[in-house]
Amino acid sequence: MKKKKLTGLIACLILVTLLSFLIGRYQNGNPFGFLTSNNLYQQLFFQLRIPRVLTALLIGSGLALAGLVTQIIFQNPLADGGLLGVSQAAGFGAALGILIFRGNSIWVQLFAFGFGVLALIISILISGKIRGNKILSLILAGIAVSAVFSAGIGILKYLADPIDQLPAIVFWLLGSLAGSTWQVLIRTMIIIVPIMIFFWFYRWRLNLHAMDKEIAFSLGLKNKIELWASLLASVLLTSSIISISGIVGWIGLIIPNYARMIAGSDTSNSIPVTLLLGAIFTMICDDLARALLPGEIPLGIFTAFLGALMFIGLLINKEKIT
């Protein structure tokens, strides 16, 4: 039963990827014209369209995976990779990196990651000081940290404005893949793919983190190393994606829930489905973002719109979100 579903999803992924390769604003004649001598189309197709579709694929599965891992670790089906202010902080870090190290991108990604981790730590520290329900205080701390860094992005943009050094604030807050190139794709793959491989092999043991601490301890999670490794890997995943695409929301939240609906809660099953669904969903959203209208529409608008619709569908179909 499961094998059939998985094969079906893989087929769907391949289909959506190939179709996406054929979608774009350049519509002069034959969609397969890149095979012929239409040099302009060839250039566009191979230099812009293909890397962009593959980037959408990659960040889609990456964000979905980060969402799943975060949900497991925080034992909350409504979390996503940007929980505890990580998204906004990574965006801030990336913006700061651009301001300071004009154009040098390894620093942008490092700053994004650094601030993402910082937000995580600050949220945890703050929540430790709040009396009362632990989960609630974590969420509250996360909201506060998120707001601070979001304001930070606004300030950076205001300061940088006269010279227009930063991508429009819209880019940071709503995400966009308009700048996708092979270079960006490969740079991102170098970070994302190893992390995905890590979680692929860890896909069964990740379940332990969903258990109560003492139970997990009795089952072999004797120290916090695995917890921190998973958490940091997830933050790294989220923040490197944010540094190239801006903050794209809803993917990490909704895709894992759908994956669980299809494959069950065991992460050894839900991880592969999450990766596939995340990729398919995001490619479709970016197809719309770059081709629906002559002007570029921020990616986050479609992920939010379609994500919210899917969320409503989820709520209606199930009594319990698990």
């Binding site: 497991i72 034992q75 909350n76 089906p77 379940n207 969903a210 258990m211 109560d212 003492e214 139970i215 301890f217 009795s218 669980r260 069950g264 809660s265 065991d266 319990k320 698990t322």
Partner: peptide, 14 residues
């Protein structure tokens, strides 16, 4: 092996 009194199971495993 350890069996706690109550257990919080946030996900619906089989």
């Amino acid at each position: 092996g350890y069996l706690s009194q109550n257990e919080n199971i946030p996900f619906d495993y089989t």
